[in-house]
Nucleic acid binder design. Structure first.
Length: 558
RNA sequence: UGCCGAGUCGUCUAACGGUAGGACAGCGGCCUUUGGAGCCGUAUGCGGAGGUUCGAAUCCUCCCUCGGCAGCCA
């Protein structure tokens, strides 16, 4: 149980429901949640919200959390998705222990329950085809009409249902329907379909079944069988709750409580599996784990930490109103976490050569750099300093604008951990482009020596040319150019794809980074957080993904 | 037009009849050998109209706006 010693978790309406349930001793005071994905795609940040919610509730209330695949539709589901989902839930920290379940493991039990309903006169085999069912369902404002097969005898229903299972009928020929009310104002109650015939191999059941349960019929049973106490799902299932309750009540079995919350929408991206699948299939992105994708695997590859995603989930809270969450919240969450953990290092994204004309040709000085100012235990490292360096192109302006604290002709700037230098000469090629800066350094100004009182406004990062490790750096920008690409009814969301969401750079980093392992995260000082890409990094070439930039107050001033 | 649901700072989210608070974003400042981090300060909000009440974001009525639902998807 939660104790008063623990930090107070942010209140939300689901916690209030649970608190009340616990108070009145409902369901033996247990809390047992689940995350029930269909394995028809990769998990995204919206699913992460649900996982954190469900797992967090179980953890905080000393309860249990199940991972259950809702694999009731063989035509869309694949083992690849199962594997990725298990990996993602684990990575996020969702601990389901040994409780990994599959709806398909309950098919036999569901079938028996269906027979029970038939025997109670609450379900019937219907021979209407898809068009006919649609036509007799009525509309939002008009009631439907009864199926001509609605009043078959129980014996005939039992016989037909058995034959459906045996594979005697083709796809779509017959369905099993609940006998509820064709005039119900809630369309879900107009004799909903419980089983459809699908002759297709199932990723786990193979050809055992040609009869597959629908979501509405299956889901409550799955929850019931697992002893789930609070069945948390998103708002679009709200209209299905009466049906969830109806099935469980008619069956007379353990009855969990369905609670709906608003799904996550994030600005500048899309969250539907259908759209994400389309981006992948049509190569708008480089797979489900493309770092620009809002998928968990994409975010992992981009350098997000599980902790940052969990913090984000806590920040956004849980409610019942539709919302569009600002991407800035997610970026804040990852910066906050990485700031505490990331090894600092210097890397020059777009290099500009600097020659220190008064620095000895063959000298290499070793300068000490702090690995993480937020965490002294991470220690220090030595950084080589030589006559020829690279600095960031953006750290030099031939004609500086006001408030520009960096290098310009005749001005001084500090090199991080090193000396103050002065720009003496700008070297250009025939095209007039700046190719090199000739500077002088002031030997009295070495960092930490305190031998000079000289102060400069700016400090810039650099890499010794002789020691520079060439790397590829991938900069990512938002995938879409508008806040809510999916909301425009008249336009296809793909029209808003950002054509500049990926920029690939040839860059240099300090030698400390040379043997970094795939997945390792660094802060390139003044630039942002970067991680070694797990897909394209090879033995002789490091590829970095920019996870997120540092907050840049200078960029805002411009 | 039927049913269900939701409206609180720019964004997300608290409040449970008793001073509308927090986070992010913004703005101003301090500090700084990362224009990072940190610290301090600051502005902005209860969809509308009535009603009940000493007192309403909260309870009631009406209105407005937005979202979901007519798959043999989940």
């Amino acid at each position: 149980m939660n104790t008063t010693l623990e930090p107070q978790k942010k209140s939300n309406f689901i916690r209030e429901i649970i608190d009340e349930d616990l108070k009145i001793g409902k369901r033996e005071g247990r809390v047992h949640t689940r995350f029930p994905p269909e394995p028809n795609g990769y998990l995204h940040i919206g699913h992460a919200k649900s996982i954190c919610l469900n797992f967090g509730l179980a953890a905080d209330y000393n309860g249990k959390f199940n991972l259950r695949f809702d694999d009731t539709n063989p035509e869309k589901e694949e083992q690849e998705y199962v594997d990725s989902i298990v990996e993602d839930v684990h990575w996020l920290g969702g601990n389901f222990e040994d409780r990994l379940f599959y709806a398909s493991d309950y098919f036999e039990q569901m079938y028996d329950y269906a027979v029970d309903l038939i025997k109670k006169g609450k379900a019937y085999v219907c021979e209407l085809n898809g068009d006919e069912i649609r036509a007799t369902r009525g509309t939002l404002t008009q009631p439907g009409t009864n199926s001509p097969y609605r009043n078959r005898s129980i014996e005939e229903n039992l016989d037909l249902f058995e034959k459906m299972r045996q594979g005697e009928f083709p796809n779509g020929a017959k369905t099993l329907r609940a006998k509820i009310d064709m005039a119900a104002p809630n369309i879900n109650l107009r004799d909903p379909i419980m089983y459809r015939i699908v002759h297709a191999g199932h990723h786990r059941q193979g050809d055992t079944w040609c009869l597959y349960p629908t979501y509405d019929w299956a889901h409550g049973i799955e929850d019931s069988l697992e002893g789930i106490t609070h069945s948390i799902c998103t708002l679009e299932f709200e209209n299905h709750r009466p049906l969830y309750d109806w099935f469980l009540d008619e069956l007379g079995i353990y009855h969990p409580q369905q609670i709906e919350f608003a799904r996550l929408n994030l600005s500048y991206t899309v969250m539907s599996k259908r759209k994400l699948l389309e981006l992948v299939k049509n190569n708008y992105v480089d797979g489900w784990d493309d770092p620009r994708m809002p998928t968990i695997s994409g975010m992992r590859r981009r350098g997000y930490t599980p902790q940052s995603v969990r913090n984000f989930a806590d920040m956004i809270g849980v409610a019942r109103r539709d919302a569009l969450t600002d991407l800035a919240l997610l970026e804040f969450a990852v910066r906050e976490d990485l700031n505490k953990k990331a090894q600092r290092v210097m890397g020059v994204l777009k290099p500009l050569k600097v020659v220190l004309t008064n620095f000895p040709e063959d000298l290499t000085e070793e300068l000490e750099g702090v690995n993480n100012p937020e965490d002294a235990s991470m220690g220090t490292r030595m950084i080589p300093f030589t006559r020829e360096l690279y600095i960031e192109q953006s750290d030099f302006m031939e004609v500086p604008v006001p408030k520009y604290h960096r290098l310009a002709p005749g001005t001084e700037v500090r090199l991080r951990y090193a000396y103050i230098i002065k720009c003496e000469e700008v070297v250009k090629n025939e095209a007039g482009e700046i190719t090199k800066l000739r500077c002088t350094y002031d030997p009295e100004t070495r960092s930490g020596t305190g031998t000079s009182q000289k102060k400069v406004k700016g400090t810039i990062h650099w890499v010794s040319a002789k020691h520079a490790v060439p790397v590829e750096i991938r900069l990512y920008d938002r995938l879409f150019t508008v806040e809510d690409p999916g909301s425009e009814k008249e336009k296809d969301y793909k029209e808003y794809i950002n054509p500049n969401s990926l920029e690939i750079l040839s860059s240099v980093v300090e030698p400390f980074v040379k043997n970094a392992k795939p997945g390792a995260t660094f802060q390139f000082e003044r630039n942002g957080y970067f991680c070694v890409d797990t897909k394209y990094t090879t033995a002789d070439k490091l590829v970095f993904n920019r996870t997120v930039t540092l907050k840049d107050t200078w960029a805002k001033m411009k």
